[in-house]
């Protein structure tokens, strides 16, 4: 079948899709709109509430737009010093932790991508075992304790940051993006493996490095478990721990709610509820600001990962 006839057939079909195709497109559009709304509406509602007065929330007058617009709750939230220190801590943990984890990945992945390295199989098994077996929560805790990094920021930067799954992705990227010819040429010109790694391999792997940086950053930024296990000093808490302590306790820190007085209609509990919306928005803001930029790298990263399989 030539392309010309194919095109003509397509053209003939395109203007008047058959009945079932039309029904498909209608159902599909409805479904997509529904999916979009169901994801978007709860978030919009929370944003609207965060800008509304406590009374408006209690009386259920907020739908998707702020009612009796106020910035009171934001003022209260941003005045709370732990939110700011939590944000800065998270920034530190996410950037330093990512830097460390990505260096580890690259150092591991490059040699593993070289078929001429003796013992490659052995090292691969050595790394792969970690995908299946782990010590578990308590042996990990004991290790952090024994290393003397318990209750220090190091425990949130360097502990348990190796991911074999990511290493395999980077490794296969190296294998496919660095043709053997370049390496041979470099060797002939007297470039050793170390120099080749820093001057050729790393620059060529920039796309996959970007993806790994984002994977790690988002992962560290959003997690609270390690901080809960390994730190007990609120001054070291990352943002997620601070948010957790505000969102999941009956009593909010008095430092935060002091500026808002319970009125005739709104009790202290109502004010907490109102504040929590602002806390949610403030907490989500950094990620949502980064989202448009992060999104396409994530999608790319997942493609690289799935191509490997």
């Amino acid at each position: 079948m030539s392309t010309a006839t194919l095109k003509s057939v397509k053209k003939k079909n395109a203007p008047k899709p058959s009945g079932s195709d039309l029904s498909f497109h209608i159902i599909n559009t409805v479904m997509l709109v529904f999916a979009g709304l169901i994801v978007l509406l709860p978030m919009l509602y929370a944003v609207a509430c965060s800008f509304s007065s406590t009374e408006a929330i209690i009386q259920n007058r907020v739908i998707l737009w702020p009612v009796e617009f106020t910035l009171e709750s934001y003022k209260a939230v941003l005045d709370y010093s732990l939110i700011v220190s939590g944000f800065l801590n998270s920034l530190l943990y996410a950037s330093a932790g990512t830097l460390f984890a990505v260096c580890l990945l690259l150092l591991g992945a490059y040699p593993m991508s070289r078929p001429d390295m003796p013992g490659r199989k052995f090292f691969l098994v050595f790394f792969m075992v970690t995908m299946f077996f782990n010590g578990g929560m308590i042996p990990n805790y004991m290790l952090v304790n024994d290393l003397g990094i318990m209750n220090t920021r190091w425990s949130l930067i360097i502990a348990f940051s190796f991911s074999c799954y990511n290493m395999v992705i980077v490794k296969s990227y190296f294998s496919s993006s660095l043709p053997q010819g370049i390496l041979d040429a470099a060797h002939i010109d007297g470039c050793n493996d170390l120099r080749f790694f820093f001057t050729m391999a790393i620059p060529l792997a920039k796309p996959v490095i970007a993806v790994m940086v984002l994977f790690n950053m988002v992962g560290i930024w959003n997690s609270y478990m390690n901080a809960m296990l390994y730190t007990s000093d609120p001054a070291m808490y990352p943002l997620q721990m601070v948010l957790r302590d505000i969102l999941f306790v009956a009593q909010m820190p008095p430092e935060m709610s002091a500026s808002l007085d319970p009125s005739k209609t709104a009790s202290l509990t109502d004010i907490y509820q109102q504040l929590r919306y602002a806390v949610l928005v403030v907490g989500a803001l950094p990620m949502m600001v980064a989202y448009p930029f992060v999104q396409k790298f994530f999608i790319k990263g997942m493609m690289i990962g799935s191509l490997k399989e």
Binding site: A35, G36, V39, P42, M43, A46, V218, W221, N222, S223, Y224, Q240, L243, R244, L247, F248, R276, V279, L280, G283, A284, M287, M288, A290, Y291, V294, Q295, F298, I299
Partner: peptide, 15 residues
């Protein structure tokens, strides 16, 4: 639809 993936567990459960 991809957006909520970037919400942390704390924010999701809080919401």
């Amino acid at each position: 639809t991809f957006m909520p993936y970037f919400l942390s567990a704390v924010l999701l459960v809080g919401l």
